[in-house]
């Protein structure tokens, strides 16, 4: 049991949690602005695909990251236009977008990349892993913190930055006000739509990074439906973390630890299906423990 929890496991947790964390931060921003974003899964998947296409065709992981952000933001903007401007049900739109992205990325993978199921290519540039010597020299922490991609660093830096943004800036204040009581905000000449669009675009950036980390960070492949429910776990992390960046970080770390532990246990002989369902069971149990005390939103079909 002792060798289950070691630096290696924590290192893996820090890394594997990043897509969920980034997506959940994006979801938290939307939630704060009053938009229940079920499309996180699709935005992240679009990001993962965009990253591979950008990196492959433009010849650099940096381009990949930009393309990932563009793709995820595009999906987010569709969500915003349909549910905010055209008043479609945000849950229906979110679900449909998730399905759209699964189909579209698979379709495009075949048309653009000429691959079925999984795309990998020796020329596909992944995100660099950052291991400066000075960092490696630090005991324990050095091993924990080196070998991560810049996106991993960005994800953890995003937590304090977003906390500052939400709670210390005027824009953050207005964004929260809109999410809490849009009509009251409107009476104070704060435009709710503008704040909600801002949240969606920021969520696009964050989920785009999440997708890039997924397809260019952990591995260097694109796989059909490779987000595999991470967007939904992120959604629960938003609820569990009460849409506060720190809370979201803690919730994501919990789920990430379970995930990493699962992968580790697989090595000990636990079937992959059991480790696969573990994060979902833990997620459900946290919801039960919350007993509706998290964010309480009701949608209708």
């Amino acid at each position: 049991m002792a060798d289950l929890f070691d630096i290696q496991l924590l290192h893996m947790t820090l890394r594997t949690v990043v897509p969920v964390l980034l997506a959940a931060l994006g979801g938290a921003l939307c939630e704060r602005a009053g938009l229940f974003n079920v499309a996180l899964e699709g935005m992240m998947l679009a990001g993962a695909f965009g990253a591979v296409v950008g990196s492959f065709f433009l010849g650099g992981a940096g381009w990949g990251v930009l393309a990932a952000i563009a793709a995820a933001t595009a999906i987010g903007l569709i969500l915003a236009v349909l549910s905010l401007n055209l008043r479609a049900n945000e849950i229906v739109v979110g679900i449909s977008l998730n399905l759209l992205v699964v189909g579209l990325t698979t379709f495009l993978m075949r048309v653009v990349l000429g691959a079925t199921g999984t795309f990998h290519h020796p020329d596909l540039q992944g995100l660099p892993q950052w291991s400066p010597e000075w960092l490696q020299a630090v005991p324990v922490l050095g091993r924990l913190l080196s070998g991560h991609t810049p996106v991993v660093w960005a994800a953890y830096l995003a937590v304090p930055i977003l906390t500052y943004f939400l709670f210390q800036t005027t824009i953050g204040l207005r964004l929260r006000a809109v999410g809490e009581h849009a009509r009251a905000a409107q009476t104070l000449a704060v435009n709710p739509l503008r704040m909600q669009y801002l949240a969606v675009v920021l969520a696009g950036v964050l989920t785009g990074l999440a997708g890039a980390q997924l397809s260019l960070g952990q591995v260097r492949i694109f796989q059909e439906n490779m987000t595999a429910g991470r967007g939904f776990i992120a959604l629960v992390a938003v609820i569990f973390g009460r849409a506060h960046p720190t809370g979201v970080l803690l919730a994501s770390l919990l789920f990430g630890l379970i995930d990493a532990l699962g992968i580790r246990l697989q090595g000990v002989g636990l079937p992959s299906q059991v480790t696969g369902l573990l994060p979902f069971v833990v997620t459900l149990l946290t919801l039960v423990a919350l007993r509706g005390r998290g964010l309480n939103r009701q949608g209708t079909a």
């Binding site: 800036t169 005027t170 204040l173 929260r176 006000a177 009581h181 009251a184 905000a185 104070l188 704060v190």
Partner: peptide
């Protein structure tokens, strides 16, 4: 009332016309 329960009194009052320094409330 048209108030934001989770915000402070000052935030409720200045919202939309906030005193700020370079965007920082």
């Amino acid at each position: 009332f048209m108030l934001f329960p989770s915000l402070t009194v000052a935030e409720n009052i200045v919202l939309g016309r906030e005193p700020h320094r370079f965007g920082r409330l």
